[in-house]
């Protein structure tokens, strides 16, 4: 299950993820991590069976957590199914189907945002997630 973590930059001094992985044995996959002057953001994939424990530990460390059920949304009224998103997505979330429609495996999205910037009809948007 994908979650988005928002943290203060000072936290990167600690081997936080490593600690949680060692404590829970959860195979946490870091999809994306950014750090800025005032806050940082990370998207991680957590196995479902360890999800509750991992989330609790992140919360205890003071991270803000939102659950990304669907990391990306497509406005099908604006989408023209051109296929540029299939070109740019590093994960391969979008696929051109036999009938030339574009399928979307939203749950695999890591919220890098490149498709949002490239989509010519502004049909794509990243989800804020559920807190």
């Amino acid at each position: 299950m994908k979650i988005r973590l928002v943290y203060t930059p000072s936290i990167i001094q600690e081997p936080l993820i490593a600690e949680i992985i060692l404590e829970t044995g959860a195979k946490i996959n870091i999809n994306r991590a950014d750090i800025g002057a005032v806050s940082g953001e990370m998207v991680v994939d957590v196995p479902e069976d360890k999800y509750n424990r991992v989330v609790r530990l992140f919360r205890d460390k003071g991270l803000k957590i939102s659950l990304l059920h669907q990391p990306i949304f497509r406005d099908d009224a604006r989408c023209i199914a051109c296929g540029i998103c299939t070109l740019i997505c590093p994960i391969g979330v979008f696929t051109i189907e036999e009938d030339w429609s574009i399928s979307l495996e939203a749950e695999r999205c890591i919220q890098c945002g490149v498709c949002v910037a490239v989509c010519p009809t502004s049909a794509l948007a990243l989800s804020e997630g559920e807190v």
Binding site: C82, I84, I96, W100
Partner: peptide
């Protein structure tokens, strides 16, 4: 070389 469409075949159809 991988090829990608820019125009929409589904809407052309």
């Amino acid at each position: 070389i991988k090829t990608y469409p820019l125009s929409s075949y589904s809407l052309a159809k």
